[in-house]
Design a protein around this nucleic acid. Structure first.
Lengths: 315, 315
DNA sequence: GTTTAATTTGTTACCGATAACACATCAGAT
DNA sequence: ATCTGATGTGTTATCGGTAACAAATTAAAC
């Protein structure tokens, strides 16, 4: 492999000049820069990242910290990892998967954290390296997420446009930030239309939503659409309605949130918000690397949601 | 962070001794070793991988080279990557995904290659860094794979045990090694039982298998089981039989190979061979890292197949 | 009881980059 | 013409390890 010194010799300059051409090109005259660029091209020079890392005493390791259980049937975390890894690899960083237990083993240059709860805030604040969260939060941490509020807002709007006259929100029984945002998207739409909000919350399991429909079937008038905070709940609602003999999408509408794997087995497919986890993962990585280089706050990076039309709303 | 020198001072030895305690402990007296170990423990010393890499002029990068098209709906490659990454991360190596095009950009310590064709053999032989293949081959490259032959052998055996009296093999129309192995597993079982082998080959698409069943329905006697070389073909066979009014598993049996995602949407689920791609990926990584350290040939690492019972064979 | 060889430890140079400092060079100010 | 200060370039030390060699100690051989 060719090194700085090889290039320096060829260009008749010191290796420091070559280094400067790479890192601080404004501090070198155009004349020398040309010479150096040419030498680099001729020798097909690629900087040695390892040496660079040692000189800057960095590790080129990013830790991905998943603070909730990994449900392996969902490609969610895999997609996230793929997305992050894509970006990191590009910059010759490597990804390390950690949990709460093996968290502080070994050094790193930064953290990507997902699944944070309120109780995690304290120790996260104490981390000495840059952090980017995956998933919105209200503690001032930089994050990447879908626009959760906008998602339910759009789906509610869509349901109304399709002629459903009653909107019931089916949320997740959790105090996490994304849930509040999804609720508020529904609420905003409902208020704009001066409708009566109806909210229910359950653990994120399809059978709970299914039970809910079956128990309350008498009160569920025709022409109602259910705006659900997750595909899982939506699938439960869908099954409940089918069981009770309701017709989707003619008499009842259902929308979900996520666009993940599970939906592939629903029939009809749920109309939902599609999140490109891979893209968001990439963005997460880029954000973090930026932060490592510039040491700046990145703020929130919010992806506008895309509706994935299924068969649970009228055409 | 504490360094070699810190440990050396604390233990009253030279840093070289500390380095030796780590890398060549047999060349240091027990007395000094004890001192050094103690110092390392007290100072919570963790070697700096970056410095190590620089000194050894290694890159800590492994290239994963996928030589076939990536079907993103299948979690196959994701699982493979997860598996590999798991191992590599553990050893602070990073994974770089490359294709034929960007293959020789940048240096690396080793390669994991999958989807090799015959035409790739030449350039792979010329690589100067250790290589491990994912998927069997007959060119002497080290590899990791499921025992393909054993898989079809076992499924054929199982089908016979369940009372099916005729076994038809449905293979993939390809000259790749795994296909030959799967065929030979079927053939061995059939020959042991002194049955008449019946083989057919198609491109790996479900509709081709489906067509085959429909066109030949008259010749497909009851009590026949189809041993398929992939889940995709198996799904096609299953659909074909259903269309023609055949009953699975009462009158007809079907087995697949892979245990991948697609199977989740089949009804009834295919009885198939389950491959733990993640585990195999990990093994691939370990094999390669071993090879990098020892410079030895690793040979083949073959995973014994596990049958995943679905509903396409009698109970 | 030397001589020789083997074992153990320390010294030095080096891996390939960067930062901090030192040294030219040249413009403008006095 | 000399003195400043800005700018561009080269020198040196350093990051945290390892290999190769040198030195010191110990053991074995004659």
């Amino acid at each position: 492999m060719t090194t700085l010194v090889d290039v320096a010799k060829k260009a008749n300059v010191s290796k420091m000049t070559v280094s400067r051409v790479i890192n601080h090109p404004d501090k070198v005259t155009d004349e020398l820069k040309q010479l150096v660029y040419e030498a680099m091209r001729e020798l097909d020079y690629h900087p040695n990242v390892i040496a660079k890392a040692l000189a800057n005493n960095s590790t080129r390791i990013i830790k991905l910290c998943i603070l909730e259980d990994i449900d392996t049937t969902e490609p969610y975390y895999m997609n996230l990892m793929i997305g992050i890894a894509k970006t990191l690899d590009l910059h010759q960083y490597s990804l390390q998967l950690v949990t709460r237990n093996n968290f502080d083993i070994g050094n790193c240059d930064g953290y990507i954290i997902t699944g944070m709860r309120e109780s995690d805030v304290e120790w996260i604040k104490k981390l000495k390296k840059p952090v980017v969260m995956f998933g919105e939060n209200r503690y001032g941490f930089d994050y990447v997420d879908t626009n959760n509020k906008s998602g339910t807002y759009i789906l509610s709007q869509l349901a109304l446009k399709k002629g459903y006259e009653r909107l019931i929100y089916v949320g997740i029984d959790s105090k996490e930030s994304f849930e509040y945002s999804r609720e508020s998207g529904y609420l905003q739409q409902v208020q704009e239309k001066r409708m009566m909000p109806e909210l229910h919350r359950f653990g994120n399991h399809s059978h709970l939503a299914e039970e809910f429909v079956e128990k309350n079937w008498d009160n569920i008038t025709k022409n109602t659409a259910f705006i659900c905070a997750s595909d899982r709940l939506a699938i439960g609602i869908e099954r409940g309605i089918s069981r009770c003999g309701g017709k989707i999408p003619e008499d009842y509408g259902v929308t979900g949130f996520d666009g993940v794997f599970l939906n592939q087995v629903a029939s009809p497919k749920i109309t939902t918000i599609k999140q490109s986890i891979i893209e968001m993962g990439s963005a997460c990585g880029e954000n973090l690397l930026d932060k490592i280089v510039t040491e700046d706050k990145q703020g929130a990076l919010i992806f506008e949601p895309k509706v994935n039309l299924g068969g649970t709303l009228r055409v």
